Simulated assay, not measured.
Amino acid sequence: MDNSTTTYEKIGGDAAVALLCDRFYEFMASVPQFSELRSMHPEDLQGSRDKLYMFLSGWFGGPDLFVEKFGHPRLRGRHMPFAIGVKERDQWVACMVLAMESVGIEEGIRAKLLENFFNTADFMRNKEG
């Protein structure tokens, strides 16, 4: 693929982003090692899933659904009410790694996304430890 192809297109567009988000929250809800991460979310994960889906759609180069509905993501500000440290960051990233693997995102794309996800999740940290 040429360099003008977006990540959104490379991974399979809307259906792939939706499936990635579904799997992310399925793993979060079912894998015991993600219990601290899960406890930071409401009982019903649908709203969280929908926001991640809208955000990732635009972040991957597809329709900018989150911005259209909510405005600028202001990720750090939106996550400030939650105590996010190294453990929470690492759980989020590990959960996303499982989700990316489970939906079959190609290894090269997955590696670059992992780097970007880690950097973004690290930026969300607002507590020691």
Rank of each mutant, 00 (worst) to 15 (best):
T5N: 10
T6R: 05
T6P: 02
T7V: 15
T7N: 12
Y8A: 09
E9F: 05
K10V: 08
I11R: 04
G12S: 09
G13R: 07
G13M: 04
D14E: 12
D14Q: 06
A15M: 08
A16T: 03
A18P: 04
L19A: 14
L19S: 10
C21T: 12
E26H: 07
F27D: 11
M28E: 01
M28P: 04
A29L: 06
A29R: 08
A29W: 03
S30T: 15
V31K: 10
V31T: 15
V31Q: 10
V31W: 00
P32H: 10
Q33H: 04
F34Q: 07
F34L: 11
F34N: 14
F34S: 12
F34I: 09
S35P: 00
S35W: 01
S35G: 06
L37H: 04
S39N: 11
H41D: 09
H41N: 14
P42V: 14
G47I: 05
S48R: 02
R49S: 06
R49T: 10
R49F: 03
D50P: 04
K51T: 05
Y53V: 03
M54A: 15
F55W: 00
L56Y: 01
L56S: 00
S57P: 01
S57V: 03
W59Y: 10
P63K: 02
D64A: 15
L65Y: 12
F66C: 09
F66T: 03
F66P: 01
E68Y: 11
P73V: 09
P73Q: 06
P73N: 08
L75R: 08
R76P: 06
R76L: 10
G77I: 04
R78D: 02
R78P: 00
F82T: 08
F82W: 11
A83H: 11
I84E: 08
I84H: 08
I84Y: 09
G85A: 05
G85C: 10
V86A: 14
V86Y: 14
E88Q: 15
E88L: 07
Q91F: 01
W92Y: 01
V93A: 15
V93C: 05
